[in-house]
Design a protein around this nucleic acid. Structure first.
Lengths: 147, 147
DNA sequence: GGAAAAAGCTTTCCATCGCAAAGCAAACCG
DNA sequence: CGGTTTGCTTTGCGATGGAAAGCTTTTTCC
């Protein structure tokens, strides 16, 4: 075994391709602002008004507006227009599709979190951070210089 | 009570500002590709070679290179240059700082996941998705039209 | 031993996107 | 009936992720 130390976390010798490729993290959802909007809407199934979302997510009018457009175009939310005391109001709600996709996104996140936590607990008890086999204990036997 | 139905999930009447503002999600880390890299490096404390990372994260050479630069500039990883059998090799490892910041990022994610899951279980038992008080059962009493 | 291919990255380029700021229309207020 | 507020939308710009191209050294093959 002259190649490298160890590669995949739990599989055999070679890295299983894409083990850490989080390409299932939906582009539309994987965005701080939109995550906030989606979480807000998820926890408020009756929908939320523009102004509520704005405060809940600490977004400016402009940014909220654009993110809502994106989510709407992606079919993740519905946007309804109405009036309250003669003033225009915008009501947003998750669509069924949005709910589903949000939940799978969250599952993906949960997977990541669990990966990290299970590794953390597995390597618990080692004194400082990384003790044995660190500072070059493996099979790579060259000199390394900072980039 | 003529205003709206209910606003904040568990607080009183008005939305607690920023409740769903995930602005603590580190910009540098909140990025699919970089998340993959960081998770890979976290679970391989001895470091990983460029080629390993490339396969683990299913990234192209160019993209991996750029993301590594970003992470390096942010002080989250170290990049070492060396040779293996007369060929250049790049070894990447988390810095202590990178490890810390990654863990707080993951904690933030965990918070989101738990928010979602606790809401899901709290509203479990309702038949389809959202049963009572949905389709306009609340206090908003106007007509709504699609955006 | 010269051409071609491979390894191992880095650099360039561009469409996209997030965010700030400006814009706009209706309603309210004095 | 000017000015301010509410309630959004649109515009503009600077940053950036990703595809593609580039570059250097090494190996292979005839």
């Amino acid at each position: 075994m002259a190649r490298r130390k160890k590669s995949a976390a739990s599989t055999g010798d070679r890295p299983s391709t894409g083990q850490f490729a989080y390409d299932r993290l939906d582009r539309v959802l994987h965005e701080k602002a939109r995550l906030g909007i989606m979480t807000s809407l998820y926890t408020h199934p009756d929908g939320l008004l523009f102004a509520d979302l704005k405060h809940l997510c600490s977004l400016t009018d402009g940014n909220l507006s654009r993110h809502l457009q994106v989510l709407n175009d992606a079919g993740l939310i519905e946007i309804w227009k109405g009036f309250h005391k003669r003033r225009p109001q915008t009501l947003c709600r998750l669509t069924a599709h949005g709910r589903t996709r949000f939940l799978s996104y969250v599952e993906e996140l949960e997977g990541l979190v669990k990966t990290v936590e299970s590794f953390s607990s597995a390597s618990a008890g080692e004194n400082g951070r990384r003790s044995r086999a660190s500072r070059r204990g493996g099979a790579i036997s060259q000199d390394w210089v900072p980039a």
